Amino acid sequence: MTTIHPNNSNATGQLLANKVALITGASRGIGAAAAKLFALEGATVTLVARTESELRKVVDEITAEGGSADYVIADVADAKSIEQAVQTTVERHGRLDIAFNNAGIAIGLSPMIDDKEENFDLIHSVNYKGVWLSMIAEIKAILSTAGSGAIVNNSSVGSFRGNPGLAAYGAAKRAVNSLTETAAIEYGPMGIRVNAVAPGTTMTEMIQRWVSQDPTILKKLNSITPLRRAADPNEVAQAAAWLLSDRASYVTGVVLPVDGGARA
């Protein structure tokens, strides 16, 4: 039996040294935190989102700290748009090694019968179809350039259970788990690992909007979280970085809760 020892050491000790990375939804929240962290850990990072001013701000912050980053404006719900973003990354850097599919949206809390069809379609197109389209483009790029690599999708702890007030959101995130597991099976033999992180309460713009609707919601969420607090976006980014690194070389098909114990 041959034992494979991946080369996860480098001169700097950085987790993602020499990796070419792509991050969707990278202009704010978990995506922006991931972009900064991945660059700090040695990756060359391409940020993808729809708002140029926000992308430019994050890239400027990264480069000011000595990191390597650029951006592409794209809409993950549009196949040609995300394909072009991935291709641009390859053209700029020669290959694609890793990707973090973080882009997603949420609407306000609402009982299912009060949801509007257009909101369901929007959630479906970005949070489910957008991940599917992104993975297709990324897998093709990894196989044709680096030859092997890793992908992490951003799911939610809400994907594991019912979601009162967030029916369409929770269903789309559960679909992401299925895509993650299927891709891990299909492309593991080709050298691509596919995992997901499932954040619990995380201090992003989405949570801030919920708090504006219901000022007591953060206290309620923290009360059912064993660590009794919300996560900082960087804490979710740390989990994604590890899954994308060679240190997780035998981990694939996993949906990792990053939830302060909420699912325990």
Rank of each mutant, 00 (worst) to 15 (best):
I185A: 14
T145Y: 02
D214C: 09
I207T: 04
A230I: 01
E52M: 01
V211C: 11
R228C: 10
N234F: 12
V211I: 15
R247H: 15
V152M: 01
T89F: 11
N127E: 09
L55K: 05
I73N: 07
S9L: 15
K220D: 15
A172W: 00
N234R: 14
A196N: 04
R209G: 05
A137Q: 04
N101E: 08
E91V: 11
G104P: 04
N177M: 09
M203Y: 07
H5P: 01
A150Q: 12
A196I: 07
A43W: 04
I4N: 15
G260K: 02
S249D: 13
S27W: 02
A184K: 06
D121Q: 13
I107K: 14
D70A: 13
I4A: 11
L16I: 06
K80F: 03
H5E: 14
Y128N: 11
L40C: 09
N102I: 05
E205V: 09
A77T: 06
R193A: 01
N154I: 01
G253D: 03
V176Q: 03
V20R: 06
L15P: 00
E54T: 14
N8F: 11
N234W: 10
A11W: 03
V45N: 05
T63I: 12
A141I: 02
D121N: 15
P233K: 06
I123C: 03
M112K: 00
M203H: 08
D121S: 08
T63L: 05
N119F: 12
A167K: 01
G13V: 13
S144W: 00
I4Q: 14
G260W: 04
S249E: 13
I123A: 05
H5A: 11
H5V: 15
A85H: 00
A248S: 14
K140G: 15
N119A: 09
I142T: 03
G147R: 06
G104S: 07
I23W: 06
T2A: 15
K57Y: 01
K219V: 00
Q84Y: 07
T202N: 00
S245P: 08
D115Q: 14
G29K: 02
A106L: 14
D246I: 03
F120V: 14
L15K: 12
G67M: 02
N119M: 08
S156T: 12
K220I: 10
I139C: 11
E65I: 06
I224G: 08
L22H: 06
N8T: 06
W210T: 03
G165M: 13
W242Y: 15
A248F: 00
